[in-house]
Amino acid sequence: MATSTTHVSLDVEPDVPGDDPVTQLTWAVEELRLAESRLSRRRQTSCGPGHSEREAMRFIAERADAGRPVTPTELATHLGLTTPSVSAIVRRLLDGGLISTRQHADDRRSKLLEPASRNAPDTADALAPSIRAAAADLDPAEAQRLAAFLAHVRDLVDADCRD
């Protein structure tokens, strides 16, 4: 799982076609989406945590932050996966030391899933520290605007091809 921590200067011209900043940004987002897709395919061969593991960690961490630890059944519902598939994901996260389990107080047959540490979502993906370092190169206002833009793009992607 080699990860580059090289800092990229944000003062260089983007490596995308067009002179118009909106066109350049649109191309840059498309290039990012394609790179993420390629990464997802590579990770299917055990190169790192896959999409489902990352999504599971995010959900487990968000629920823990809200004071509502998640059960494997709730995780399966959230991910839209079968119970056996989620059991395999939970096993990999446990084996990687990213989550812990404890008995459900109201249902002794059930267990609750919690992050092993508050930094678990970041440590679930070896790429996260490099992304955090690149984001640290931005001024705070620029980072907020980019975060808002990317959240909007995420919502557009999530809404596409929904039944």
Rank of each mutant, 00 (worst) to 15 (best):
Arg54Val: 15
Ile131Pro: 08
Gly96Ser: 03
Val86Phe: 05
Ser87Lys: 12
Ala64Trp: 01
Ser110Glu: 14
Met57Arg: 10
Ala64Ser: 10
Pro72Met: 10
Ser46Ile: 07
Val70Ala: 11
Arg132Cys: 09
Asp107Gln: 14
Thr101Lys: 03
Asn119His: 08
Ala135Asp: 09
Leu79Cys: 08
His78Met: 01
Ala126Pro: 12
Ala136Arg: 10
Gly50Pro: 11
Arg108Lys: 12
Asp95Arg: 02
Pro49Gly: 08
Thr82Ser: 14
Gly80Met: 05
Leu79Ala: 02
Asp137Cys: 05
Asn119Phe: 14
Leu94Phe: 01
Ala61Glu: 06
Glu53Ala: 13
Gly97Asn: 04
Arg68Thr: 12
Ser40Leu: 07
Thr123Ile: 11
Ser85Phe: 06
Arg102Trp: 09
Leu75Ser: 00
Gly80Arg: 02
Glu53Arg: 07
Leu138Pro: 01
Arg102Ile: 04
Gly80Ser: 07
Ser85Gln: 12
Arg132His: 13
Arg118Cys: 11
Arg109Ala: 14
Asp106Ile: 15
Arg92Phe: 00
Cys47Asn: 06
Lys111Ser: 09
Ser85Tyr: 06
Phe59Glu: 08
Leu79Met: 04
Gly97Cys: 10
Ala126Asn: 01
Pro72Lys: 00
Glu55Gln: 15
Leu81Gln: 03
Ser52Gly: 04
Ile131Val: 14
Ala120Leu: 05
Ser46Cys: 13
Ala133Gly: 11
Leu98Ile: 07
Leu79Phe: 03
Ser110Asp: 13
Ala61Trp: 04
Leu113Cys: 01
Glu62Gly: 03
Ala64Tyr: 05
Arg58Ala: 12
Arg43Glu: 08
Thr73Gln: 08
Leu113Ala: 06
Leu75Ala: 00
Arg58Lys: 15
Arg43Asn: 07
Ser40Val: 13
Gly96Glu: 07
Leu94Gly: 00
Met57Cys: 08
Arg42His: 04
Arg118Tyr: 02
Pro129Val: 04
Ile89Trp: 06
Ile99Val: 11
Ser40Glu: 10
Cys47Met: 14
Asp65Pro: 06
Ala116Leu: 09
Pro84Arg: 03
Gly67Leu: 00
Arg92Pro: 09
Pro49Ala: 15
Ser87Ala: 04
Pro49Lys: 10
His104Gly: 00
Ala126Tyr: 01
Ala133His: 01
Asp122His: 08
Ile131Asp: 08
Ala133Val: 12
Leu94Asn: 09
Asp125Ala: 12
Gly80Ala: 05
Leu112Phe: 03
His78Gly: 05
Ala134Gln: 10
Glu55Val: 15
Arg54Lys: 14
Arg118Ser: 06
Ser46Trp: 14
Gly96Arg: 07
Asp106Trp: 13
Arg63Phe: 02
Ser85Trp: 00
Leu113Thr: 06
Arg43Gly: 11
Ile89Val: 08
Ala134Arg: 05
Arg132Phe: 12
Ala124Ile: 09
Ala56Thr: 00
Ala134Val: 01
Ser85Lys: 13
Glu74Val: 06
Ala128Thr: 14
Ala136His: 06
Pro121Lys: 00
Pro49Asp: 09
Gln103Tyr: 04
Gly48Lys: 03
Ala126Arg: 14
Asp122Tyr: 10
Val90Met: 05
Glu74Asp: 13
Asp106Gly: 09
Leu93Gly: 05
Ser130Met: 01
Gly48Asp: 04
Ala134Thr: 03
Ala124Phe: 01
Leu93Ile: 14
Arg63Ala: 12
Leu127Arg: 10
His104Gln: 02
Ala105Gln: 11
Pro115Asn: 00
